[in-house]
Design a binder for these strands. Structure first.
Lengths: 345, 345
DNA sequence: TTGTATGCGTTATCAC
DNA sequence: GTGATAACGCATACAA
């Protein structure tokens, strides 16, 4: 027999095996294992010994089937590129294992059959957190109607489905105003409001800041179609491919990866940051402080976002009714915006 | 009734409901659903309609229990900080969903009860990939003996448990020799061989390169106790806190995050990179090329590593016997090592 | 304190 | 082609 194809010395032991060995019924085995019902300490010891000797552990699917409960939760996100998602996931996972729950994940990518996969996922967990616009709007409510509590992350809540998010309007206004105050006048917003409610909110605040400054509201963002470095690079190359006064002198990027792409584009075009072009990001990646030049960005509590979502989800699973939660982000001035005075690391 | 506490219009429908509605037996329902056994096309249509109307989908735990198969796989890793892990996870997840398998994850952190959690995980999946030294050496073999095929990642294979990894010795020798050839003589290896077989391999190659250059083999690395930015910063601050000829003039870091920490330390101590201190990383984070100065590092195929591990795991689940796989990494010269000529972005 | 019996929702093996 | 029916492994109401 092939060594890599294990077969167990005789398939896994079950409750009956343990019960027989301990000379009790399966009900008693279940009781000592779950630590509920009453059981004589002497019996308990005998059963415990039998379990140990056989190396028994309960079948997860059987438990789930009988107990109608999975001891598992899921996180659904759009993609997995970049620190933002990995930090959210990290917070979510940490909180889940703290409660001894298994963690399932699903990256939606840009697949079209996401709703089907999400529904499948829903059959494997007790509750799930859904980020952004990863699935059709109705699906979340639908999943929940099927008995699986849902929590939304980085998007507004909908009927009966609470959400946790980071308020992006204030920092965006602060950032935009700061930029406008220090020179750049032809700012371009790099990011795709269609892809994420968070970014849509920032796009609006970006316009508001222009209005407050008495400037014309930019008519449309530069849609990137994604939030990765190469998206930022391509868009920046396209938008900067102009001479003279028409060329943008500031790129307000929806995340640090897009900003990184902008750095690439600027280097390729021989443009200096921040002299020829101001660039700002969002997320405050640890590397941002040591870029050339250090990147002005916005720090948002990504880990907390994931942990908080998990926490609220568990509260719901415990039967509590939870409300929306909004966390705050803070503007971090460095030097890529052209303002040297307040620069910090 | 509380709106957030869903209850389903009457709990989920099951095969019996579908069967009754279609006027057939549950066996037939199962047949049309699984698309195996013979069934009259007219009957099939009727059953299909009933399934659609009721919105039925099979209970995952029930399927797992009856079919002895989870349609799920797991990835266990030490932590989730940094691009390395998130990229490996990304590759793993992508390959898994491509095969319509659910993905479970577990970050071991530095918990002591990892083995227990891994065993629990093993009860939820058909196979699992384990990274590094996240669990006691015997546990992997043990899990596999219980019938769950295991694949090792970023560590050597053990009896009957194949592994996929990146060869780190060559790039390390290349990097170290490059450094030694261009000035720095008092190199320090920053990283913890105890924590990861990959790093242990590089530590050995680091010594080999010294020997080949006719230099004394460094006696011990600077153990970091972790691979995060702050680990690198603290260790660098400690090791650089010396004046004159005793101070190291080169830090060979086990990953880019540690190198980032070294940048922080250098800045704090007023040391210039690369003039006073050469620094190299590992992983080639996208930000590395745009750091100040651009970071010399080693590019390794992290996404592929995860995808490949998943692929091999699935081959094993399909009954194939698989061998070890070794991917290659490549040295990327930029300017943090003090060598300007070959610098690239 | 312990045991019996039934349900959980599938799949699959038989008969018919 | 189709339908009973027996697993699968555990939890629990109910008896004893």
């Amino acid at each position: 027999m092939d060594a890599q194809t294990p077969r167990g010395s005789a398939s896994r032991p079950n409750v009956y095996d343990v019960a027989r060995r301990a000379g009790v019924s399966i009900a008693t085995v279940s009781r000592v294992h779950r630590g509920n019902g009453p059981v004589a300490s002497e019996t308990r010891a005998r059963v415990q010994a039998a379990m140990d000797e056989l190396g028994w552990s309960p079948s997860v699917p059987a438990q789930a089937l009988a107990g109608d409960n999975h001891n598992a939760v899921a996180l659904v996100f759009p993609e997995l590129v970049g620190r933002y998602y990995s930090e959210v996931l990290r917070g979510f996972e940490a909180e889940a294992v703290r409660r001894q729950q298994a963690v399932l994940i699903l990256a939606a990518h840009q697949r079209k059959d996401n709703d089907a996969m999400v529904r499948d996922l829903a059959g494997r967990v007790d509750g799930m957190v859904i980020m952004d616009r990863t699935i059709a709007d109705g699906t979340a409510a639908d999943v929940q109607r099927r008995g699986v509590p849902v929590l939304l992350l980085a998007r507004p809540s909908i009927e009966d489905v609470p959400a946790v998010r980071v308020a992006g309007a204030d920092p965006t206004r602060e950032l935009t105003t700061h930029l406008l105050d220090h020179g750049p006048r032809r700012l371009v917003f790099v990011g795709d409001p269609e892809l994420s409610p968070d970014v849509a909110e920032r796009w609006r605040a970006f316009g508001d800041a222009h209005a407050v400054a008495g400037l014309a509201r930019p008519t449309s963002p530069v849609a990137t179609g994604g939030y990765q470095q190469h998206d930022g690079r391509e868009v920046a190359l396209a938008v900067l491919d102009t001479d003279g006064d028409a060329r943008p002198d500031g790129l307000v990027c929806a995340n640090d990866q897009l900003a990184l792409g902008a750095y690439q584009a600027a280097a390729r075009l021989g443009l200096s940051i921040p002299d020829d072009l101001a660039v700002t990001g969002w997320d405050d990646d640890p590397f941002a402080a040591h870029m050339d030049p250090p990147l002005t960005t916005v720090n948002q509590p990504m880990y907390d976002l994931g942990a908080c979502a998990a926490e609220l989800l568990f509260e719901r699973l415990d039967g509590d009714v939870v409300g929306d939660v909004t966390l705050t982000a803070s503007f971090v001035v460095r030097s890529s915006c052209g303002c040297v005075e307040g620069a910090s690391r």
